[in-house]
Computed example of a mutant assay.
Amino acid sequence: MKSIAALALSLLATSISASPVIPTATIAFANDQSGAQGSATIPEDGSVQNIWSLYGSTKIAAGGAVVASSAQLTSFQANTNCVIKNANWVVVGTLTAEHTYLDLDGTSNSLVPLNLGGWTVSCTV
């Protein structure tokens, strides 16, 4: 009886350890005017993540909105690819190991904080 229990336990341990590990990336959004920033971990499985859901409890959330002017990929794989889209599903920019910083308003001479309500991010490896 003990050997059956030991076998069952080892099979359970094997099945748990065989679960696929989904890699993740970490993106920090910042409001460069106020100095507030918030970080969140995003699964690199291609799933679309709502920015409000990820950052709504961070310091860039104020008055019911998530407000930021830039994004930076801070933890990632060599082949990470994260796409940020606005509320109209238009690609705002892509973060990769070679391109880790993104000015969200698209103008290089200013950092205008934007309301990221309805924005999304998805990452793949």
Rank of each mutant, 00 (worst) to 15 (best):
M1L: 01
K2T: 11
I4L: 00
A5S: 10
L7G: 01
A8C: 02
L12Y: 11
A13E: 08
T14W: 12
A18C: 06
P23L: 08
T24R: 11
A25I: 10
A30E: 08
A30T: 12
A30R: 12
N31E: 06
D32R: 12
Q33F: 13
S34R: 10
S34C: 02
A36V: 04
Q37S: 14
A40V: 04
E44R: 02
E44H: 02
G46L: 14
S47E: 10
S47G: 12
N50T: 15
W52G: 11
L54T: 03
S57G: 15
A62N: 13
G63S: 08
S70K: 06
Q72C: 08
Q72K: 05
F76V: 10
A78N: 06
C82R: 05
K85A: 09
N86R: 11
A87E: 08
A87R: 12
W89L: 13
V90Q: 15
V91E: 15
V91F: 01
V92G: 03
G93F: 09
T94H: 03
L95I: 01
L95C: 02
L95F: 03
A97W: 00
Y101E: 08
L102Y: 03
L102R: 09
L102P: 01
D105R: 05
D105W: 13
S108I: 14
N109P: 11
N109C: 01
V112K: 12
P113A: 02
L116A: 05
W119F: 06
W119Q: 07
T124N: 08
